[in-house]
Design a protein around this nucleic acid. Structure first.
Length: 153
DNA sequence: GCCAACGTTGGC
DNA sequence: GCCAACGTTGGC
């Protein structure tokens, strides 16, 4: 069992969208490190912190879980898609993603509040200039955050 | 809108 | 394989 933080812009796809859909393919990742996390390390049932980025109140907005193993992202083959990758071929896909299942909304845990806790100081999301959209979360950090959110394990 | 950080591209 | 230029991310 591993834990992850996954960023999304709520204007693109936020926690309310996931609450409505129940389950969603996490397509559009075009960063090798983030892809490798999904493809090589994620397991069904892993915990996910759903993080809202590039918005008025960035922070953790809810909980989700990994719902499927990684599989090829079909948008890489679609010339109409903004995620189209001309170098990817169906017989040799470059980009993979998992599906994510909604667990629950939480109160917003703002980025500024996260910064205030020494227990979270090592989180990658808090590092200056971090742009990685998927990052591993230590179990201690996961449990600390859930406690701050008032979520029972 | 600014700008720091950092990944990717492409010429050599 | 190096590295400068460029593009993107994302908080502020």
């Amino acid at each position: 069992m591993r834990y992850w933080l996954m960023k999304s812009e709520p204007s693109e796809y936020g926690i309310d969208d996931l609450a409505r859909d129940g389950i969603a393919p996490w397509f559009g990742v075009r960063n090798y490190q983030a892809r490798n996390f999904m493809r090589d390390q994620m397991r069904v049932g892993d915990g996910v912190l759903f993080y809202h980025s590039s918005c008025p109140e960035p922070g953790i907005a809810g909980l989700a879980e990994v719902a499927t193993p990684a599989y090829p992202d079909t948008t890489q083959f679609d010339p109409e898609s903004k995620y189209y990758d001309p170098k990817a071929r169906p017989d040799n896909p470059r980009w993979f993603h998992v599906d994510v299942r909604f667990r629950q909304k939480t109160r917003l845990l703002p980025l500024a509040e996260m910064r205030s806790y020494p227990e979270l100081a090592r989180m990658r999301i808090l590092a200056r200039g971090n742009r990685l959209s998927i990052t591993p979360v230590d179990p201690d950090e996961w449990h600390f955050i859930l406690a701050k959110l008032g979520v029972g394990q």
